[in-house]
């Protein structure tokens, strides 16, 4: 009899604790989620860039979602160089064809994959980009060749709306 009583009491307390814990969780979540991107940030539209005036060998930087995007119109030599690299030389093997669907245009997030600095254009040992923060070298396809960065610079989702306009995002 006594044992049964204890059990029931334990069940009551356990249930109270459990239900209370659920409530605490339900209250904590909104306080955490409020720091996530809000509806207006999520809705931010894609950026369209007019590239009609760009000559080969020129890079422009545009802002997309608060980050720089490099758009480079590559020369024929640069394309050839990017394509000639052997996969086993690369830390993060990726063919140039995969990175630049139209080989003349390289579009990528200008953010070093090490700790997020913006690499410098036309610098470094591989004739591509060089990150001044911790010395990562990228080639003309934006692939990591030397230094602490683990992966190639990211290629965002983009498309050519027409011959002169690139839509990022």
């Amino acid at each position: 009899m006594a044992e049964k009583k204890t059990k029931r009491r334990d069940f009551l307390f356990t249930a109270t604790y459990a239900v209370g814990a659920v409530g605490v969780g339900a209250v904590v979540w909104p306080m955490i989620d409020q720091m996530n991107p809000d509806a207006s940030v999520k809705a931010l539209a894609s950026t369209e860039v007019d590239v009609s005036s760009m000559d080969p060998g020129k890079t422009i930087t545009v802002l997309w979602r608060g980050k720089p995007v490099f758009i480079r119109r590559r020369t024929q030599e640069e394309i050839a160089e990017a394509k000639s690299v052997k996969m086993d030389e690369l830390k993060d093997p990726e063919k140039d064809e995969e990175r630049a669907k139209n080989p003349e245009w390289l579009v990528m997030l200008g953010v070093c994959t090490h700790l997020g600095c913006v690499p410098l254009d036309q610098k470094g040992d591989y004739n591509g980009w060089f990150c001044p923060c911790h010395g990562s070298h990228y080639d003309i396809s934006g692939r990591i060749r030397k230094g602490p960065a683990p992966t190639n610079m990211e290629v965002p989702k983009y498309e050519f709306v027409n011959a002169n306009t690139i839509k990022i995002g």
Partner: peptide
């Protein structure tokens, strides 16, 4: 509804 359920549970725990 949740608060009412928890209140009932706490009430009986309190009595106990």
């Amino acid at each position: 509804v949740y608060l009412i359920i928890l209140t009932i549970l706490v009430y009986f725990s309190m009595k106990k």
